[in-house]
Each structure stands twice: as structure tokens, then as C-alpha cells.
Design a protein around this nucleic acid. Structure first.
Lengths: 150, 150
DNA sequence: CATATATATTTGTCATGACAATTACAATAC
DNA sequence: GTATTGTAATTGTCATGACAAATATATATG
């Protein structure tokens, strides 16, 4: 049986993700904010838990350690965060927000909301919750599989 | 009101897409197939419509023209496809599948199915259809917005 | 027909994803 | 306490996404 990509949830999720990324990217650009969506996601995790290590951020954000290293490099150059030697384990660093990060917190959240509102137009709360629940289950399936491969 | 990324459908879709990409990537690698998921998507569109132009593929796959150009370059080097001057419009080229593409069609579809089965475990047809329908609606919202920005 | 505008593709550059290899330090085993 | 193994972070390399700029050819306008 031939595969139909249009009917494949995996593919549809992947493709929609690209479109959503494009959308938030343009909204951020339109607002002249000097940050990318992925950089913002790292900052978000720091807002939840300032002083996290690179590894903790990578695990939370389900990102590759190497990529988080490089995102942090850029955020550091931009003056949003700073790295300190971890006293508890000198292999690692703790990452800390700097005051400049406050400046973009609200505007970037506004961008996020704008993107959400566009994407979710006409989709009611009940449907959104159902969607999140299914995505949860798929994510669990995939995470379990990825972990079993290591 | 603070944003919670865990409850944001946009973010959950984007993150799940990364995990799904990682999964199909590893399944393809495990099977020693010399192709990437994105390269396969371009081939898929050619299987639907051999002789498409770069632009047609980009539109169908909702990809950036520049990126499709480079994916096609790689597929050409790998011997899966070939480019011919478009007689109807000499600015463009038509892209054609070569016999070698047949060799990977079945194995790569098998990888795709394996990835689907893992992701969709425990999620019944009705739920999958509901999911696709909601994704459809979100995609329409986002596409409409992206087009209005041009 | 000549000029202006539009379109198809390519090229350049940066950000990020994947994964492998490396480095530095920690923890464990003996 | 030294050797082995494990872990945190980094670096290298490639694929692909985004977008801007360049190139070649078509189309439209006068």
C-alpha cells in the first residue's frame, strides 16, 4: 500500500511545525526583536529555573547538548545571559539571566501570543485540550522509543 | 499572564516535530539508507508528479525554493534524479526520477511506516482522523496569515 | 521594438538540527 | 592511589530552514 503523506500524522505535524516556525520568525522580525524562537525557548527555561546547567536546559527543552551550547553562546554575546563555573561540579557551568533579558520578556511573549492567536483561530478550548492530549501521547511514544535506542 | 510552553499547542507541535524528525532519521540510518527525510519528501512529490519543476515541488512541499534547489542538487549527485531544461520556459527545469530511485522506494516507505507505528501506538483511527482535521484547520490559519504578509 | 516589471532559479549567509569525536573533570573499581 | 569508566561541555561537519540578493528569461507597457 502506497503511503499518502497528506494522511500521515507524522508528516503533517512536521510540516505544520515548519510553517509555525516561519510564522513566529516573521512576527519576531516585524517587531524588530533581536532574538530567534529557539533562543527564546532557552531563555524561557531559564525564567523557569535560573542557574540551570547546559545539560539541564538541553534535557528540559529536549534539545541536543551541542546545539544548546551554541544557542547559549549567542545569548551570551547578545548580553542576555552569563555563564559561571559550577562550584558543585567543575565540568559544568550554570547559566544566569542578566537584566537585559527583562527588556525582551514582554515583547517576545506578545509575539508568541500573536502567533498562537493566528494559529488557533476558530479552534475552541475543548478542541485545543484534546489536541494537547493526543500530542502528549504521541510524544510519550516517541520519547520512549528514542530512549530505548540508546 | 505568563505563557506556559507546555500548554501552547504551537510549541508542542514544534517540539514533537523535532522528536519525530529525530526518530525517522535514526530509523533511516539503522537501515543504512543513503537519503534524508527531506530528500525523501522531494522524491515523494516526484513520484506523485514526475517532471515537476523546482518551483512546483517547493509549492507542493511548502518549502523554500532555495532549499529545494539544494536538496535537488544532492539527489542529483546521488543519482536518484536528473534535471532537464524546460522547453516551455527556459528559466526553469523539469526534474525527473531515474531508475535508481526505485531501489529505495520500498525500503524508505517501510521506515516511514515503522516511524508511524511507533508514534501512533495506542491512538485509534478516530483519534488520528480528529488530529488530522485539527492540524488541517491550524495549517489553513497559518498559511492564510503567511500569504497575507507577502 | 525598447523599457519596465515579473518570475524561476541560484547563491550567499546565518541559525539550528543531527551525530561523532574530543576535552576536562568526576566517580568507581581494583 | 591509579586505572577505568562515566559525564558535561565543546567542536567539527553536514543537512536544511530563513531570507536577501543576484541572474536569466518572460511578459507587459508604452
Amino acid at each position: 500500500m502506497e503511503i499518502k503523506l497528506e494522511n500521515s500524522p507524522n508528516h503533517r505535524i512536521a510540516m505544520l511545525a515548519i510553517l509555525l516556525k516561519r510564522q513566529i520568525f516573521r512576527i519576531i522580525a516585524k517587531n524588530n526583536l533581536d532574538i530567534t524562537p529557539e533562543q527564546w525557548i532557552v531563555m524561557y527555561h531559564l525564567w523557569q529555573q535560573d542557574g540551570s546547567t547546559v545539560g539541564e536546559i538541553a534535557l528540559n527543552a529536549k534539545k541536543d547538548f551541542a546545539n544548546v551550547t551554541r544557542i547559549i553562546e549567542k545569548l551570551e554575546k547578545a548580553g542576555y545571559i552569563t555563564k559561571r563555573k559550577n562550584l558543585a561540579d567543575s565540568r559544568s557551568y550554570t547559566i544566569h539571566l542578566l537584566p537585559k533579558s527583562d527588556e525582551i520578556k514582554k515583547p517576545i511573549q506578545q509575539c508568541w501570543k500573536e502567533s498562537m492567536n493566528i494559529a488557533m483561530e476558530g479552534i475552541n478550548n475543548e478542541e485545543q485540550e484534546f489536541l494537547i492530549k493526543i500530542l502528549d501521547r504521541i510524544e510519550k511514544n516517541v520519547m520512549q522509543n528514542l530512549e530505548s535506542l540508546q
